[in-house]
Design a protein around this nucleic acid. Structure first.
Length: 352
DNA sequence: CCGCCTATCT
DNA sequence: TAGATAGGCG
């Protein structure tokens, strides 16, 4: 499906692109790739040069590709000038995904819209919703069945909430106090390089959802008449539950030191690693479950003399919540691991 | 305007 | 399913 057919048409007028980038190593790469895709490419180092080039060559460019840099005139400024003066779409790129550089420049325009507009206008492609990522280098112009051309950029990495990472998350929450915990604070406390507030927020949401699920389940099983406990006060989890999970946790993750880094990023394709593990069955879900440790509630649960929840075992934990009632389940709560994480996935590690 | 939260997307 | 993203709202 990824055939180079995209250049079989459009021989008459090549699309011409002006590439602005002062990075000596990056510029040739971008230019080369674009040329390979049969675009006519002109390169300049600085925005100033770009402007003069545009003045000379007028509207002969179909698209300007800039880097978002912090030189005299940055990519965004250039973008504005060009867009206004020449009415040529500008595609800004950056390898800098920190500090919201890109979003700042886009002012309310979602990244998708922006790039869709830019690409569509410039290349007159059909609206193929191929995600084009704003971060990192551009990869390759690839086809669509419809002959549309899309830029396919490396998809942004996802972080994986490994055991150690999740633990620092939990500890941050404990330090802050559960009810005062918000993404920003948690994030600050964690102090994990490369981890963003958004990462934390997302995980926090999942975590709370999970917690809700568990507390609801346990209250309905345990004391049906006092579900107000878990309802009103989220910080109530039976010690039995805690114990179970603790135990579970230790058995299976006992020596987690095999994972040297706290933060693991994966890149786009999910064929390996995560997916792979997932496909191996439910026990894997347990491995990947974001909440394997209830230490947050340790103190609270200590004074909760509850018992009988007994069976929030591993298997029930990773199963859905739809009607635990009268769950006789012949499926025994078996958990067998073939030994921790086997990360054959592509990843970047951030030591810390 | 920031950032939290929920819904939705991938 | 997990994690990312968008949008609403305080």
């Amino acid at each position: 499906m990824e055939v180079e057919t995209h250049m079989s048409f459009r021989t008459a007028e090549k699309i011409s692109i002006l590439v602005v980038n002062d990075d000596a190593t990056y510029l040739p790469v971008v230019a080369g790739l674009l040329k390979k895709c049969n675009y006519q490419v002109v390169t300049v180092k600085y925005p100033i040069d770009a402007l003069s080039k545009l003045k000379i060559k007028g509207d002969s460019f179909d698209l300007v590709v800039t880097d978002v840099h912090k030189s005299d005139m940055n990519g965004f400024e250039l973008q504005q000038v060009i867009t206004q003066a020449f009415e040529i779409p500008v595609l800004s790129m950056s390898a800098d995904d920190k500090e919201g550089t890109i979003l700042k420049g886009l002012k309310g325009v979602s990244v998708d819209d922006q790039r869709d507009q830019g690409l569509c206008t410039a290349l007159q492609v059909k609206r193929g919703k191929k995600p084009v990522h704003e971060k990192s280098a551009m990869k390759l112009g690839k086809q669509g069945k419809d002959n549309s051309v899309n830029f396919v950029l490396p998809t942004k990495s996802q972080i994986i909430w490994t055991e150690p990472l999740h633990n620092t998350f939990l500890e941050a929450i404990r330090n802050i106090g559960f009810d005062k915990a918000v993404p920003k604070k948690i994030h600050e406390h964690m102090k994990v390089p490369g981890l963003t507030r958004e990462n934390v927020a997302s995980h926090w949401q999942k975590y709370r959802i999970y917690l809700r699920r568990v507390t609801d389940a346990s209250s309905s099983i345990q004391v049906p008449d006092i579900n107000l406990a878990s309802r009103a006060n989220q910080s109530t989890i039976a010690s039995g539950t805690l114990g179970k999970h603790r135990q579970f946790h230790q058995e299976n993750f006992g020596v987690q030191s095999s994972v040297p880094s706290l933060l693991i990023h994966t890149t786009g394709s999910r064929t390996s690693g995560l997916q792979h593990l997932k496909n191996k069955g439910k026990e894997v879900d347990v491995v990947l479950d974001p909440v394997r440790n209830f230490s947050v509630f340790h103190n609270v649960s200590a004074m909760q003399g509850s018992q009988g929840i007994g069976d929030l075992s591993a298997s029930s934990m990773n199963q859905r919540n739809d009607q635990p009632h009268q769950q006789n389940n012949e499926d025994e709560a078996h958990v067998n691991f073939d030994g921790g994480f086997n990360q054959d996935m592509e990843k970047e590690n951030y030591l810390q």
